[in-house]
Amino acid sequence: MIETEDLSKQFNDFWAVDGVTLSVKPGQILGLLGQNGAGKTTTVRMLTSLLTPTRGWARVGGYDVTQDGDKVRASVGVLTEQHGLYMRMTGAEYLEFFGRVYSLDVHKRRLRSDYLLEYFGLARAAGRRIGEYSKGMRQKLALARALMHEPPVLLLDEPTSAMDPESARLVRDEIARLKSSQRTIVICTHNLVEAEALADIIAIIFKGRILMSGSLEELKRKVLGVNEYEAKFSSSWAGDALKIPQGAILRERRETGMRFQIENPGETNPRLVRELASAHAPLVAFQEVPRTLEQVYLKAMADVQSSHAEALHA
């Protein structure tokens, strides 16, 4: 479990992280999104007890990051922005080294190392120097290192950034498996599709502050407004005879379709479909208009930047 309250970090006169309050339960994945320099890495470093918070507190895996640094670090697996690989070591030696750093016994070290090398498709390259690995292989090895001691908390910075689609899928599957085994996971990423697919909670960080956080649905509603539904027609239909039921607002009318904003789809949608049918609409499909995390993120960032610009201008 990860809990933070007013977590803040100041470097000289600059607040890199300012008042971050979060809660991630076991079995949950938090997707931490934000621009470069927004404070994601600083937050992760505070959660790893590498940086001491200037203000506020954080508990990771039940331990206070300021008081129990060693215990926090023992219960966290970190994939850092720079992978931190020793280029003259072989892949197997590298995992063996970190297995010993985390005090795993010989049997466990071998077991975990073999499993992870096999899982990430690195078994055949295990005896080769890391310097000879491709970028993707290096990233997989770094991820394997973070998972080596089966930590209850995982902090992953861009876990699939340099990977080919198959490898990225492999990593996402592994993260999903870890989530189902009640691990607490934080993913810092610019890959919004990945965050959308994996994260239970999304937090957007801007200039050190959490701009918004919540489930994807909550964020969509907050940023993009209520859900929209689209009725598609097989041919051109004017729709003058349509009685729009209460709770639905017509947002857009086209020749072969209509788009409605619906506050309470469970109640309103059946009535709307009935009205469309009784008005003899050539209806072929009625579906929710897909809204992506990318739309949410871009809108949120555009809003905050324009309000910042206005504030500066004023």
Binding site: T48, L50, D70, K71, R73, A74, V76, V78, T80, Q82, H83, G84, L85, Y86, F98, V101, Y102, S103, A142, R145
Partner: peptide, 11 residues
């Protein structure tokens, strides 16, 4: 960039 994993360990 190899220091961070070492510093992030319980050593």
């Amino acid at each position: 960039g190899t220091i961070e994993p070492l510093l992030s360990s319980p050593m």
